[in-house]
Amino acid sequence: MKIAYYPGCSLHASSKLYDIQAKSVLGKIGIELSEIEDWNCCGATSASKTDDFLAIALAARNLGIADATGLSEMMIPCSSCYSRTLVSQKALAGDPALRSEINAELAKKVEGKIKISNILEVLLARKKELTDNAVKKLTGLKPACYYGCLLTRFPSDMPITDSVENPVAMEGLLKSMGAEPLDWGYKTDCCGASASVNDADMALKLMSKILKDALARGANCFVTTCPMCQLNLDAYQDEVREKYGIAKSLPVYFITELLGVSMGMGVEQMQIDRHFTDALGLLRELKLI
């Protein structure tokens, strides 16, 4: 089965490993991710902070390309891209004048047909196939599942498939693979993301709260689906620990690499050696790799 796929800029660059993992894991259960051709950046949070028209129009061009594929569903792993694309699709459905105005500039017009899914929705719909393909139980893995902001909260009303304040999709998936996900208090709190570059003290403070809570609950790793959150919590963790005197570190996994490991895929295929905070030690200790 083919699903349209929008990787977004980060899965082509700093989070290329996530792109590779997603294709391997879904490929294993017979899903082919078909990257839409010649996509552009969705504008992310920056477009909506600077220009209301671009915030809708940039994602609209991708929606037109996606509609033209004739496929029924498009998966967007990055939470920011997912959010902007969904918001654009909804805004255009509710504003025919804006839609024609934007369509006039596009080679492939937005029809509004394609269903936009995040990676958890795509994975959860295939939980049985995933568990059927699992060869290792993720015993001993105690993840703090981290959803961040943009997977469940939107700038306008949006019907979502999980709970806004206490989403549980990741926990469900990981439990079925034998892991023991924990209840904790910061699963939808903001990690700061872009503030790590432009307002660093603020971002470090937010990350310290997240890290401290996860450790206090007894987590031995984070799991996330958002490449922005992953990079942030992974790359800046040393700085957070140093500034806030936190002794222990926690690896920050993408959901896909843990699913891959339980399906028997190795370090090289899952590219688990591309983390900033050691991510191999725990998996070795648990004899998962």
């Binding site: 700093s14 220009d51 028209f53 105005e101």
Partner: peptide, 27 residues
């Protein structure tokens, strides 16, 4: 990022540049 092979040097670009341009002009 270099050490972890997470730095990307190839310039990623969209071919439909005229469309992007016209959206920016409209904005």
């Amino acid at each position: 990022m270099l050490k972890k092979k997470r730095m990307h040097f190839k310039l990623d670009r969209t071919k439909g540049k005229s469309e992007i341009k016209s959206l920016f002009k409209k904005a």
